[in-house]
C-alpha cells in the first residue's frame, strides 16, 4: 500500500481574540490510518477539527485535507470527507431507510446509487427487520453503527469521528471498532477525536493536545513505553498534569 498523506498540517493556529485555541500544530495522517486526536475538554480538539473539515478558517498556518487546501478549497474538502458526531448523527423521526436516502441525497448520490447503497448497508448491518422503523426507537449501539455507515455513503477519503462510542455496551463497542478496522483496511482514513483513553488504544497513532498544542504524537505502544506506563489513560494523566 502506498503510504501517501491524506492530511497535512503545518503550524496551524486559531486565535479567538488573545486566546490561542489552537497553537501552531503540525502533523500528518497517512492513507488508511486510524488516527486518534486526543485532548481534555477545552484543549482545542474541536476547534482544530472544525478547521480540518472546512467549517472554520484558520488564523495562520498551512493545512490540506485530501489534497485540498483548507483556505481555498473548503467546499471540495466537504465532498471528500465523512463526518459523524455523537451529538448529532441521524434524524430520530425518520426511518432507517429515510435517513439513508436523505443523507445520500445531501452528498449528491443518484437515485440508483442510493438504492444500491441502502440495500448493501441494510444487508451488511443486518437491519432487514428494522429498515422501516424510526431511528429513534433503535438502541444506541445500532444508531451508532448506522450513522457510521451513513458517513461512508459517498465513499469519502477520510471519515471524522467526533467522540463516537460513548455509552454503548462493551460488545457493541467492539463491533463498532471492527467496522472501523474494516473501513481503514479498505483504504479510508479514520480521524477520531475522543477523550476516552481506552478508545485511544485502538488507534494506529494518537496525538494528545494540551492547551492548544500537540504534546505527544506516536503509536499507543511507543507512547506507553515513553512514559513508562501500562495504559493510555496514564499517558494522558502524566501529560496533562505536567
Amino acid at each position: 500500500m502506498k503510504q501517501e498523506n491524506v492530511i497535512e498540517v503545518e503550524g496551524l493556529s486559531k486565535k479567538f481574540g488573545d486566546f490561542k485555541a489552537v497553537d501552531a500544530i503540525t502533523f500528518e495522517v497517512k492513507r488508511g490510518e486510524i488516527f486518534g486526536f486526543l485532548g481534555a475538554n477545552g484543549a482545542g480538539k474541536t476547534t482544530a477539527m472544525k478547521m480540518l473539515i472546512g467549517i472554520s478558517t484558520p488564523t495562520s498556518g498551512k493545512a490540506s485535507v485530501a489534497d485540498f487546501d483548507v483556505y481555498t478549497h473548503a467546499e471540495d474538502i466537504k465532498k471528500n470527507i465523512g463526518y459523524m458526531s455523537q451529538k448529532f448523527a441521524l434524524y430520530d423521526d425518520l426511518s432507517v431507510k429515510e435517513n439513508i436516502t436523505f443523507f445520500g441525497g445531501i452528498y449528491g448520490l443518484s437515485r440508483a446509487q442510493i438504492k444500491d447503497k441502502t440495500a448493501q448497508l441494510i444487508e451488511e448491518l443486518g437491519l432487514q427487520e428494522v429498515a422501516n422503523q424510526l431511528v429513534g426507537s433503535l438502541p444506541l449501539g445500532w444508531k451508532q453503527k448506522i450513522s457510521f455507515s451513513v458517513a461512508l455513503l459517498h465513499d469519502p477519503k477520510i471519515v471524522f469521528l467526533d467522540e463516537p462510542t460513548g455509552g454503548v455496551d462493551p460488545i457493541t463497542r467492539r463491533q463498532f471498532w471492527e467496522m472501523i478496522y474494516k473501513t481503514a483496511n479498505n483504504g479510508t482514513t479514520i480521524f477520531v477525536t475522543t477523550h476516552y483513553m481506552d478508545e485511544a488504544e485502538y488507534c494506529d497513532r494518537v496525538s494528545i493536545m494540551v492547551n492548544g498544542k500537540i504534546e505527544a504524537l506516536d503509536t499507543p505502544e511507543r507512547l506507553k513505553k515513553q512514559f513508562s506506563v501500562t495504559n493510555m489513560n496514564d499517558v494522558f494523566l502524566k501529560l496533562a498534569r505536567g
Binding site: 485532548g39 481534555a40 475538554n41 460513548g166 455509552g167 477523550h195 483513553m197 489513560n233 494522558f236 494523566l237 496533562a240 498534569r241
Partner: peptide
C-alpha cells in the same frame, strides 16, 4: 464522570 476528561475523572 460521563463526558469529563481523564484528569477530572481521576
Amino acid at each position: 464522570t460521563t463526558g469529563v476528561d481523564p484528569v477530572s475523572r481521576k
